[in-house]
């Protein structure tokens, strides 16, 4: 069990590195567009489109890692007042609810993704990007987030303490 849980952590971290790479790519793409427009009177023709994909992919791919490292905020009115087993039970309830939500979102988004894949839907820009590619990245992020929630549930069951909110001061 531990091994599976640790593997999910490892994948979450890897996905966050991908999200970070996407952020760098977005900056680079915009800089390229600026250079092309100002110096060469041309355009990549796809900046807004690709950067849009980047934001979506980055947001969802980084979700699992953000959850794991305590960066996703919550309204801590109830949780801070609870201790011991009550705290653990409340935490498990939150995780279970969020996991149910994630399964719901994931299932319906999967149907959208599958339809776009079989239909061969492409974007209407000059690049004609198959939309299952950016949608697939988003789905991967949602699926991984679900896995991470499941792993967290397991960890709570094994007696690990709840994730502490981390303000990222490092």
């Amino acid at each position: 069990m531990r091994m599976i849980v640790d593997a999910v952590d490892w994948i979450s971290r890897a996905a966050a590195y991908v999200a970070a790479a996407i952020l760098v790519f977005m900056v680079g793409h915009i800089l390229l567009e600026i250079v092309l427009r100002n110096l060469f009177d041309t355009s990549t023709f796809v900046t807004a489109e690709f950067v849009g994909y980047g934001v979506a992919a980055m947001t969802y791919l980084g979700l699992a890692f953000s959850l794991r490292t305590g960066a996703l905020i919550r309204v801590n009115m109830l949780l801070v007042r609870l201790h011991g087993p009550a705290r653990r039970a409340a935490e498990m309830l939150c995780v279970a609810m969020t996991l149910a939500l994630t399964v719901f979102l994931g299932w319906y988004f999967w149907r959208q993704l599958a339809r776009d894949y079989t239909r061969g839907t492409v974007s209407y820009s000059i690049a004609e990007v198959p939309v299952w590619i950016p949608e697939g990245l988003v789905f991967a992020g949602i699926a991984l987030f679900g896995l991470q929630l499941f792993a967290y549930l397991v960890r709570l069951g094994l007696g690990d303490p709840p994730i502490a909110e981390d303000v990222g001061g490092e």
């Binding site: 009177d41 041309t42 355009s43 990549t44 023709f45 900046t47 807004a48 820009s125 000059i126 004609e128």
Partner: peptide
């Protein structure tokens, strides 16, 4: 759109997205 980009590129203009 893509058509406008192609069309105006072909007449020597600088289409920008």
């Amino acid at each position: 759109d893509a058509n406008g980009t192609i069309t105006f590129r072909d007449v020597g203009a600088a289409p920008i997205q």
